[in-house]
Design a binder for these strands. Sequence first.
DNA 1: CACGATACCTGTAAGC
DNA 2: TGCTTACAGGTATCGT
Length: 282
Amino acid sequence: MQTPPMSRDMPELPEVETVMRGLAPVWEGQRFTRVIANRPDLRRPLPEGLGQRLTGATVVHLGRRAKYGLVAIDRGDTLIIHLGMSGRMRVDPDGLARHDHVVFETGNGRVVAFNDARRFGSLDLVATADLATHPLIAGIGPEPLGPDYGLPLLKAIFADRLAPAKAILLDQRLIAGLGNIYVCEALFRAGIHPETPGGQVRPAQLKRLWLAIPAVLEEAIAAGGSTLRDHAAPDGTLGYFQKEFAVYGREGAACTACGSDVARIVQSGRSSFFCPACQPKA
DNA sequence: CACGATACCTGTAAGC
DNA sequence: TGCTTACAGGTATCGT
């Protein structure tokens, strides 16, 4: 089988969920004994006094919102972790590696390194009370695995829209946490061509999409997050697992449903993979 | 406002 | 072999 060897280390919702679940037993209830920043910035400058503000604090709870990992500490602050495209958490690494930008040590003797080659990731430290209104969080749409998700939401965000279905699902303001991979997979399951204008998606397709989105996310989380290759386990990096995709990254290969060649188009500068037969143009 | 294009950054792999 | 180029992805920002 000719699998296009492409980079697939994209942390979307399932990957972030997997990383935070993996981090929980390492950090929850533990005190930060040392936090070292090896450079002043990632995508943006690191929070002022990050090390001082975390050292001595105890981790109360780990969570997630969209693609942001949340680390609540007992001082009333929350550390917001974004992995960007290449960010990963290396647990108890065998020595420091290139791009280990921030290193966290806890009272249990564990070491976690935030490694991010491309530095599209970010760390922010904000008052937990202000979290919901923080600029990074405030405008984000409902969680697709949360209580506010439902067919009415999808109907609302697709209705009367000219933007392609692909773009709608990638828009974090409309629905949280979906990235290129899972949007491709969900549209395939729903039989929706990625270029279909939102307003032209038929009710039956929307209903399939409503079921497909949580399904692909849950399956990925169950598989351990679908970050491949780079989240390799050997060095303790969290979030690694191998997941088979139906269309993503499979240009030219046979559709798993009908055998047609999977196609690839570029929308807004990024690849959309789909089956031309199963996802006919509207 | 809605939407598209682009910048950001580096590693990987394909092409020459 | 070595050099060059294309491309991956999330989000902020700018332009139309």
